[in-house]
Computed example of a mutant assay.
Amino acid sequence: MAQYFIIHAENPQARLIQQAAQLIQQGGVVACPTDSSYALVCSMQYKDAQTRIRRLRGVDDEHPFTLICRDLAEIGTYAKVNNSQFRLLKALTPGAYTFLLEASREVPRRLQHPKRSTIGLRVPGHIVVQALLEALDMPLLSMTLQLPQDELPMSVGWEIRETLEHQVDAVIDSDIVHVGATTILDLTQDPPELVRAGVAPWPK
């Protein structure tokens, strides 16, 4: 049975954030709100948790995770960022964007694109997920919480609990900003390329 945390979107309760963080540190899978729908999140350290997320999503081993980071400094740890890329990242973070960048040595090979050695990274503007990142002191692996039979990502905490209460370790119920996917930008191209139009505007 999944634990169920109702967390205030503007003033997250530290005790509940710590409990959710502890579950992730122990290898758990958590349904977490972001600024673009809900996501399934886990630690980079637990392959079993990553396998559970892939199974829930109905995707194969090549479907990429996104690395959720606290800030630009953390992105710089897990990706190689040049000056022009940094300027764009600074302008668009935090926000509902996913950036494709060349992975650094800190990213395990199994989490990189198998041919391009890239990784998707984002810095969300949602206060609850930011509080969770602070409590963990490390990034989160994530995939959008969109089940195989659904056309849109899940966006209501209690519905997620009812649907996945035996398949995840916790559900964080909190307000979200948008229902939809992030906008994906490939920063390894010059100029950057729009890979997927999402809830955030394409910067022109």
Rank of each mutant, 00 (worst) to 15 (best):
residue 182 T to Y: 05
residue 133 L to V: 11
residue 111 L to V: 06
residue 160 I to W: 00
residue 161 R to H: 15
residue 163 T to S: 09
residue 148 P to K: 01
residue 142 S to F: 00
residue 177 V to F: 09
residue 135 A to M: 08
residue 171 V to F: 10
residue 129 V to E: 08
residue 152 L to H: 14
residue 120 G to E: 01
residue 132 L to I: 11
residue 99 F to V: 01
residue 138 M to W: 00
residue 165 E to L: 14
residue 170 A to T: 02
residue 132 L to V: 11
residue 131 A to V: 01
residue 101 L to C: 12
residue 152 L to C: 08
residue 172 I to Q: 05
residue 144 T to Q: 13
residue 183 T to S: 03
residue 189 Q to H: 15
residue 192 P to K: 06
residue 111 L to K: 09
residue 182 T to C: 12
residue 105 R to Y: 08
residue 111 L to F: 12
residue 162 E to G: 05
residue 114 P to S: 01
residue 118 T to R: 05
residue 161 R to K: 14
residue 141 L to F: 11
residue 103 A to G: 07
residue 177 V to W: 04
residue 183 T to Y: 07
residue 194 L to R: 06
residue 106 E to G: 12
residue 120 G to N: 02
residue 127 I to T: 15
residue 101 L to A: 13
residue 111 L to A: 05
residue 171 V to C: 10
residue 129 V to D: 05
residue 128 V to H: 02
residue 159 E to Q: 15
residue 157 G to W: 10
residue 116 R to K: 12
residue 146 Q to P: 01
residue 100 L to A: 00
residue 196 R to G: 12
residue 168 V to C: 03
residue 180 G to V: 03
residue 121 L to G: 01
residue 137 D to A: 14
residue 114 P to N: 06
residue 114 P to Q: 00
residue 132 L to H: 08
residue 154 M to K: 06
residue 160 I to D: 03
residue 184 I to S: 09
residue 156 V to M: 11
residue 108 P to N: 08
residue 158 W to Y: 14
residue 118 T to V: 07
residue 178 H to A: 14
residue 188 T to K: 03
residue 108 P to A: 07
residue 159 E to P: 00
residue 99 F to C: 08
residue 124 P to S: 15
residue 103 A to I: 02
residue 121 L to E: 00
residue 137 D to H: 13
residue 172 I to D: 02
residue 165 E to M: 14
residue 123 V to D: 02
residue 124 P to T: 15
residue 98 T to W: 09
residue 100 L to S: 00
residue 130 Q to C: 07
residue 106 E to H: 15
residue 174 S to Y: 06
residue 127 I to F: 00
residue 163 T to L: 13
residue 95 G to M: 09
residue 127 I to E: 13
residue 143 M to P: 06
residue 187 L to A: 04
residue 95 G to Y: 04
residue 136 L to C: 13
residue 158 W to I: 11
residue 145 L to P: 01
residue 159 E to C: 08
residue 135 A to P: 05
residue 151 E to N: 12
residue 168 V to H: 03
residue 183 T to C: 10
residue 161 R to Q: 13
residue 125 G to N: 10
residue 142 S to E: 04
residue 176 I to A: 11
residue 120 G to Y: 00
residue 177 V to I: 13
residue 98 T to A: 12
residue 139 P to L: 08
residue 129 V to S: 04
residue 198 G to V: 07
residue 112 Q to I: 03
residue 178 H to E: 14
residue 186 D to T: 13
residue 143 M to N: 05
residue 130 Q to Y: 11
residue 170 A to S: 07
